[in-house]
Amino acid sequence: MIEILSDTALATVQDLGRTGALNWGVGTSGAMDPLALAAGNLLLGNPAGAAAIEIQVFPFLVRFTEPCAFALTGADCAARLDDRPLLPWWSGAATAGQTLRLGLPTGTTWRASRAYLCVAGGIDVPDVLGSRSTQLRGAFGGHEGRALRQGDHLRTGTAAARITGFGAMPPALALPLERGGLPAIRVLPSAEYARYTAASRAAFWAEPWRITPQSDRYGYRLAGPTLTPEAPIELRSHGIVPGVIQVPHGGQPIVQMRDAQPSGGYPKIGTIIEADLWRLGQAPIGSRFHFIETDWTSALAARDANEAWLAGLDRLAGLHRMRSAAR
């Protein structure tokens, strides 16, 4: 069991998301940084989509009530197991009674905002409608359908002893993307793109966007140039996905994130490609970034690059565990 010691709001149990329930109005949820969640799981020999804890408010403390192999990925939080420092993107082993502490994210070579605590066997919460992710709006999934609280006890899946003490190269460094010294995120234009003024379209790509404090797992409200349609746009409700960039009448875009509803009606100027959504999921509030226009072929190449990176990690981590176990 893991006991939550800190009274921080907004840490939730997440996996790679809930698919197959859109027709009941249920959005996907899932990790804001799916690459980090998958990498942590692969270090431990878990399936890539095992449930983990997503942490976005620090410091965050948990106590292991029994021996537990774990991995920390995502934001570098200068973590300590009791008084021993841990490397970021690293697996470790706790003995019963040890306390894990994640401090404020430090950003020497990569500024990030969410950390993932993966455990051998995954966080053992019920599968609800095909996923263990917390559905905050529907108040189901994850741990009792809500964010974690002080005193919560989470069971971990049963797992044999694991080889730990090694790590993964953070994908932010392995798969970097920036423009003009700022992080960059690739976008495919969406249905209403052509209905915005030429000046708005040009500014959308050229100007940096800032992530406002009104940003969370549901959506990121951005600040930047005002986006103006040639004529007012009123749409019928339609399916949307995480990554869709909606423009409400005020002209400042909202990017739908993992807890987004599965449908909407605001005009869509573009959609962040799935391969890059983790970059925004990790970008801190107040930070700035650029949108880069991409095409279908490049977007699939980006997906392939992410998949190849994870497959490589899975293969090498498996080899390393096998060799270490044989020694």
């Binding site: 859109l22 109005g25 559905q135 529907g138 009448h249 509803q261 605001y266």
Partner: peptide
């Protein structure tokens, strides 16, 4: 159709005389 959030229904058939644009914010 269902959408928006768990269990929410999109309904047809509203009288257009009471149409009102979505809120600015």
């Amino acid at each position: 159709a269902l959408g928006s959030h768990p269990g929410y229904c999109y309904l047809g058939g509203m009288d257009l005389r009471i149409s009102t644009p979505r809120r600015k914010v």
